[in-house]
């Protein structure tokens, strides 16, 4: 059973006792003990996953880390958020997924045109099962709860992940004024309704919708 803990807020320490975790390729910064690093082709979801990832463009360069000792992971000094899954599904942008326990399954999920308009791609990565996952964010993530009657709208560039029973829909504020360059600057929003949690980072990626 791999033990996930945070060393500070930007380094993930995983204690391994002969078991494996999947981590983003090249994210190891240090380790003690004996470790083996094996690149997994195509995101580590087997042949089918590999084909899916290639087709969907939701690429993940993943390595399998196996050994005895403690392995430290970090990614460009971004903040790390640990998420414990007990059979729930975590939807996360593939750029923000740092490390998952071997017991978790990863796959891709179709987000429809919402994803495309927001510049995050048509697909998002899905993590499900029992275990720990580590999600990175630029600046500490703000966790926002969505419940019935209280929908949340998020800038697509700040969205990193969500869990729970959420429906997401694109909300567009773009109109004729956007076309003549007098838009509100927030033309694309993702609306979450239902029950669940949304992880938002205090920073915005460059998205297609971000500039209009």
């Amino acid at each position: 059973m791999a033990q996930f803990r945070l060393q500070g807020s930007k380094v993930l320490a995983v204690d391994l006792a002969g078991d494996t975790v999947k981590a983003r390729n090249g994210s190891m910064v240090a380790y003690t003990g004996q470790m083996g690093f094996k690149k997994l082709s195509g995101g580590g979801d087997g042949l089918r996953g590999m084909v899916t990832r290639r087709l969907t463009g939701e690429r993940m360069e993943v390595m399998e880390v196996k050994g005895q000792g403690t392995c430290y992971f970090a990614d460009k000094a971004t903040e790390i958020n640990l998420v414990r899954l007990n059979g729930e599904t975590l939807f996360v942008e593939s750029d923000n997924l740092l490390c998952t326990e071997a017991s978790l399954r990863t796959g891709t999920s179709f987000t429809g045109l919402n994803g495309m308009a927001s510049g995050n791609g048509l697909f998002t990565t899905k993590v499900e099962g029992q275990g720990w996952a580590a999600v990175t964010s630029h600046g500490p993530a703000v966790i926002l709860r969505v419940s019935q009657g209280l929908p949340l709208r998020v800038d697509p560039g700040a969205y990193i992940a969500h869990t729970g029973n959420l429906h997401r829909a694109l909300k567009s504020g773009a109109g004729w004024s956007t076309l003549i360059g007098e838009g509100g600057g927030e033309a694309m929003q993702v609306e979450f309704t239902g029950e669940g949690l949304v992880y938002v980072q205090p920073s915005e990626r460059m998205t297609l919708g971000g500039e209009v």
Binding site: L150, V154, G157, G183, G184, G185, V198, Q201
Partner: peptide, 14 residues
């Protein structure tokens, strides 16, 4: 572009 999320009803106009 500095809005990251909101609850409630809002309109953003240039």
């Amino acid at each position: 572009g500095k809005m990251i999320a909101y609850y409630g009803e809002m309109r953003f106009s240039g």
